[in-house]
Amino acid sequence: GQVHVGDTTYHFPNPEEARKFAEKAAKENNLQVTQHGNTFKVE
């Protein structure tokens, strides 16, 4: 799974890890998570 936060892309071998990371980043920054397959975008 990939997580895009601003201009930075994080790669995770496990989509579940990617999702947890995205949700945590979104919560900390008052942002939203959008999911496209195994790619998550925090914005």
Rank of each mutant, 00 (worst) to 15 (best):
G1E: 02
G1I: 11
G1R: 03
G1W: 15
G1M: 09
G1P: 10
G1D: 03
G1A: 15
Q2I: 15
Q2K: 13
Q2D: 07
Q2W: 15
Q2E: 12
Q2C: 15
Q2N: 08
V3I: 02
V3M: 01
V3P: 00
V3G: 00
V3R: 00
V3N: 00
V3L: 00
H4G: 04
H4Y: 11
H4A: 06
H4I: 15
H4P: 01
H4F: 12
H4M: 14
H4R: 13
H4T: 14
V5A: 04
V5C: 14
V5D: 04
V5E: 01
V5Q: 04
V5K: 03
V5R: 03
V5L: 14
G6Y: 09
G6I: 05
G6D: 06
G6P: 01
G6F: 13
G6M: 07
D7L: 10
D7Q: 11
D7A: 10
D7N: 14
D7R: 13
D7I: 08
D7E: 11
T8G: 04
T8S: 11
T8P: 03
T8M: 14
T8H: 14
T8K: 15
T8L: 14
T8V: 14
T8N: 11
T9Y: 11
T9E: 07
T9G: 02
T9Q: 08
T9R: 08
T9C: 15
T9H: 08
T9K: 09
T9D: 05
Y10G: 02
Y10Q: 03
Y10I: 08
Y10D: 03
H11I: 11
H11D: 08
H11K: 07
H11V: 09
H11T: 09
H11N: 10
H11P: 04
H11S: 08
F12P: 03
F12L: 01
F12T: 01
F12M: 02
P13D: 14
P13F: 08
P13M: 09
P13I: 10
P13A: 13
N14R: 03
N14E: 06
N14K: 03
N14D: 12
N14P: 01
P15V: 15
P15F: 15
P15Y: 14
P15M: 15
P15C: 15
P15T: 14
P15E: 13
E16N: 07
E16H: 08
E16W: 07
E17H: 06
E17V: 08
E17C: 13
E17N: 05
E17T: 09
E17P: 00
E17L: 13
E17S: 09
E17A: 11
A18H: 00
A18N: 00
A18S: 02
A18I: 00
R19W: 06
R19M: 07
R19C: 11
R19L: 08
R19G: 03
R19N: 03
R19A: 07
R19P: 01
K20P: 00
K20R: 13
K20H: 09
K20S: 10
F21I: 02
F21L: 01
F21Y: 06
F21D: 01
F21K: 00
F21N: 01
F21V: 01
F21M: 02
A22T: 00
A22R: 00
A22Y: 01
A22V: 02
A22F: 01
A22L: 02
E23G: 02
E23H: 08
E23N: 07
E23R: 03
K24H: 11
K24M: 11
K24R: 12
K24Y: 11
K24W: 13
A25H: 14
A25P: 00
A25M: 15
A25G: 02
A25S: 08
A25Q: 10
A25E: 09
A26K: 01
A26H: 01
A26Q: 02
A26D: 01
A26R: 02
K27D: 06
K27E: 10
K27N: 08
K27I: 10
K27F: 11
K27V: 08
K27L: 12
K27H: 10
K27S: 09
K27W: 09
E28W: 10
E28N: 09
E28C: 13
E28L: 12
E28Y: 09
N29E: 08
N29V: 07
N29D: 06
N29H: 14
N29A: 13
N29F: 14
N29C: 15
N30A: 07
N30G: 14
N30V: 03
N30F: 07
N30L: 06
N30R: 08
L31P: 01
L31F: 07
L31Y: 08
L31M: 15
L31G: 13
L31Q: 07
L31W: 12
L31V: 07
L31S: 10
Q32P: 06
Q32R: 13
V33M: 07
V33L: 07
V33R: 00
V33E: 01
V33Q: 02
V33G: 01
T34V: 12
T34M: 06
T34K: 09
T34L: 07
T34A: 06
Q35V: 10
Q35Y: 05
Q35D: 03
Q35L: 05
Q35G: 05
H36K: 09
H36R: 09
H36C: 15
H36F: 12
H36T: 10
H36S: 10
H36M: 11
G37W: 02
G37N: 06
G37R: 03
G37S: 02
G37I: 02
N38M: 04
N38G: 05
N38K: 04
N38A: 04
N38V: 04
N38R: 04
T39I: 15
T39R: 08
T39Q: 11
T39V: 14
F40I: 06
F40C: 04
F40A: 05
F40N: 05
F40R: 04
F40S: 05
F40P: 04
F40L: 05
F40W: 10
K41D: 13
K41T: 15
K41W: 15
K41Q: 11
K41A: 09
K41S: 12
K41P: 05
V42D: 04
V42P: 04
E43T: 11
E43L: 10
E43Q: 11
E43G: 14
E43D: 10
